[in-house]
Design a protein around this nucleic acid. Sequence first.
RNA 1: GGGCGGUUAGCUCAGUGGUAGAGCGCCGGCCUUACAAGCCGGUGGCCGCAGGUUCAAGUCCUGCACCGCCCACCA
Length: 886
Amino acid sequence: MPQENLAKAYMPLEVEPRWRARWEDGRVFSPELPAQGEPYSIVIPPPNITGNLHIGHAFNLTLQDVLCRHARQQGKTVLWVPGEDHAGIATQNVVERRLAAEKKSRHDLGREAFVQRVWRWKEEYGENIRRQIKAMGASVDWTRERFTMDEGLSRAVRRVFARLYKEGLIYKGDYIINWCPRCHTALADDEVEFTPRRGKIWHIRYPVDGENGFVIIATTRPETMLGDSAVAVHPEDERYRRLVGKKARLPLMDRLIPIIADSYVDREFGTGALKITPSHDPNDWKLGFKHKLDFIQVIDENGRMTAAAAAFAGLPKAEARERVLAELETLGLLEQSLDYEHNVGQCYRCQEVIEPHVSTQWFVAARTLAYKARAAVPDKTRIHPESWLKTYYNWLDNIRDWCISRQIWWGHRIPAWTCEDCGKLLVEEEAPAVCSHCGGRRLLQDEDVLDTWFSSALWPFSTLGWPGETPELRAFYPTSVLVTGFDILFFWVARMMMLGLHFMDEVPFREVYIHALVRDAEGKKMSKTLGNVIDPLEMITRYGTDSLRFTLTAFAAMGRDIKLSEERIEGYRHFMNKIWNAARFALMNLPEEGPVPALGQATAQGTHHQWILHRLEEMKTSTAAALREYRFNDAAQDLYKFVWNELCDWYLELIKPDMQAGGETRAQAQGVLLTALRETLILLHPIIPFVTAEIWTALPAFAGEKPPDPDLAKILYPPARPACLHPEAASRMRLIQAIIVAARTIRAELNLSPSLPLKAIIRPENQTKEKILEEHRALIARLARLESLSLDAAAQPPRLSASQVAEGNEIIVLLEGAVDTGAERARLDKELGKLEKERQMLEKKLSDRNYVEKAPAALVERDRQRVKELAAAGKKLRLVRNKFSE
RNA sequence: GGGCGGUUAGCUCAGUGGUAGAGCGCCGGCCUUACAAGCCGGUGGCCGCAGGUUCAAGUCCUGCACCGCCCACCA
C-alpha cells in the first residue's frame, strides 16, 4: 500500500492494526517444513490463563520477538510456539472465588461440573491472552498454538508419568509435606513463601523422670507438644550431658519421652533443648527416623486436633494453643513467654499459613534426574548472563525430591488406578479396562492432579508434538534459546532440563537468556494490590507498541530490575516520530517511482556520503553482534544514537544542498539516502516492527530493481558492502563537524541571532586540512549559517572578531555589527581555561617518567601531540583575547 | 545462616584499565520549508567509604557501610 504522503506525525493507532491483521492471519510466521534454512526455535514461556498480561510479559515477549525477527532476517527457518498454561492452583482459586460470589463452593458443583466451569473460564481468558500477545506484535506461529491441558500435551504428561513410574523415578510415599489448609492441597517446597511475623516463643518445663529437675524447651508452637516423642540436646552441651539417655515426662499427656543427643541442635538458640515432634515439623521428621521415634499426628488436614491429642481432640489448633498454654500456666510449667519475630511459611497462592503435614503423596526422584541437568551446563546449554550459573548449580546440588501431587481438581489427573478387588496399584498411560493383576473391573483412579510445573517441564518437546515423531520435533528440538525471568529459574528452567534430557536424551534449549524483572518507578514489584501496575495495553494505546518495545529493549541490560515509568515510554515515542519524519523528508526528496540510481557494491563520491555509508556498515556489524550476544540494550541504544545524532542531525542536513542542486549531485544523494534509509529500517525492524514496516511500503524502488517484498518482516538482513568501509571519510567528517560546531558555539554564546548573517575566515592548521575544508566550504557555510566563508592560513583576525579552534584550525567570525565585547572576552577566558586545564593534566602525566617509559608508546605519543595542539590553540585564542582587552 | 546484585550528573541508568557517558530534567537562543514529539548551544560528577595491585583504577583485589534480591527455615 504505497502512499503519496505520510501523515505529519506518526500515528501508531492508525498504522498498527493493519500490520497486526496481516501478521496474524497471513501465516507469515508459520515456517514450512522441511526447513529450508537453519532452524531457529523458541517456545514461549506460557502465560497463566488467570488474568491479563502484565508488563513483565510484554518485556519477555519483546525480547523473544526481537530474536525471532532477527533470526528470520538471517535467513533462518524460525518457529516461535505460542501457548498458555493452565496454572492449576491459581486458576482453581480464581474460579472458586467467583463461585463464592454466588455463595457456592466447588463441592456444591461436584468435580465434573467444576472442571467444566474452569474450562469455560479458560476459553474466555485464553482469548484475552491471545489478544494481548498479538497486540505486542509477537511473530508467533498461531497455527501451532498449544495449551498445557490440550489433548496432545495431556498425553505427553501421562506418558512421562507412566514411564518415570516404571523406571522407579516416580514413587508414592508418606512424607511430611507443606499443606495448605485453605487450598486443601500439598505444595512443593518452592510454593511456600516465608514472611516474617511477630509472634511469641514460649519456654516450657518438661519434668525429668525420676528427678525433681526440669529440662526447659523453647517452642513457637506449643500445641504441637502433644505430639512430642523426644527432647533433643546437643551432644557436647555440658548443661545437658548428664540428662542424655534419661526420660522426660511430657506435660499434659503424661507420656515418657527420651532425651536424645543430636548435633542438629543449636546450643545457642533458645534454651538449647529442643522438643521433637516428628509428625509436625520437617526437621523433626528427619530426626524421628534417625532416632526411631514415634510419629504422633495431633493436627489433621483441616487444622483440628486429632484423637491423639487426647483431651484437646477436636479443637481448632489456635484454640488448642490457648488451652495448652493455660494449663501449663496452671501447672507452673510455663517458664516464660517472649516476643519473637520469625519466618512463617505461607501458601504462595492464598497466603494461608502452611502446616507441615504427613500424608501420602507422589514424588519425582529429582536427585537422580538432577545429575544430568547439572552436567549439561554450560557445555550443552549456555546460560546468559553467566552470573546465574552458580545459582543454577546451587539449586540442583541441594535439590530434594519433588512432590508432584496436588489435592485439587483443575489439572492433569494422575494416571494411577487402584484395583478395588486386589488392591494393586496400576499406573498406565491410558485408562486400563481391567486390572492386569486380577482381571477385576472395579478400578478407582487416583483423585489427585499433578503439579502445574510437571506439564510445564515437558513444554519444549510436548509442544512440538512428542510423543509423536513429528517433523516439528525433528526440525526444532532442541530449541535455540529460552528467554525467561530469573524468578522461575528453579520452578521451570531446571525442571525442563531434567525432563528434556531424560526423555529426549538432549537438552531442551541450547541457550538460556535470563532477563530482569520489571518493577515500578520506585523499584517495587508491580502488583494489583499495590495499584502500581503498568498495563501494556494501556501503554500501547497511549504511545504505540513500538515505543513500548523500544523502551523495554533499551533497558534490557539492567541487572535484575528494570524500574519502568511511563515517562520513559513517552520519551521513546519521540524517537518513533523522529524516524517517521526522517522518512517523510526522504520521500519528499525521492522520486515516487524509480529511477533512484542504485548504489550497488560501490561507495559514493563525497565525504558526507562516504561517511554515512561507512557508519551504516559499522552499524550492520555491531547490531548483529549485539543481538547475537543478547546485548539488547546496546543494539537499541546504538541504533538510537545512529539514527538521531548521525543520520538525522547531520546527514539529512548535509544532503539538503545536494537535493536543491539537482542533476547528478541530486541523483547520487538520492541513491545514498534510499540505501541508508532502507538498511536502517531493516536494522530497526526486529525492535520496532510496526513503524518500520509502514515506512517500508512507502519507499520507492531503485532503478531497474525488482521491487522488494512489501512486507518488511520478510526482508533479509542487508549483506555487508565492504567497499563502503571508509575510515578516512569518517575522519574528514569529524573535522567538518568540529568546524561547524565551533561556529555555532560562537554564535550561541555571544547571543547572536541565528538569522543574523555572519562572515567567517578559517585559518587551517595544514595543507591537508585546508584541502578538505576548501572542498566543503559551501557545506560548512550552509550548516553554520554563514553568509560567507573563506580560507586563509595567514589571516590576521581583525579587532572585532570571535574565534574558536577546532581540530587545530582556527575559525574567526567577523563581528562587524554591535557586539558585546565583554561577553566575547568572557567566552574566550572560559575557553582558554578549559584548554589550560587539559594541558596541565596531560603535562603532569607526561612529566611522570614511569608513565612515559611503561605506557604504550602510541598512547604517550598521542598525549604529546595533544599537548602541542592545545598549546597552539591557546596561543591563537590569547591573541584574539588580547585584542578584545585593548 | 548461605549465595547474588547494586551504590556513577537533579532523576533513571550505560560504561570493554588509558582525558567520565546517554536519556529525561535544568539554563539560554530559535517556528532555520522532515520533525516544537523539533533544532542549536550550554550547565551539571571527591564514579558509596578505606586500603591494595598498576606508569595508570569508575573498571582488578581486600575489607567496610548502606540498599535490594534469591536460597535455607533455627525450635
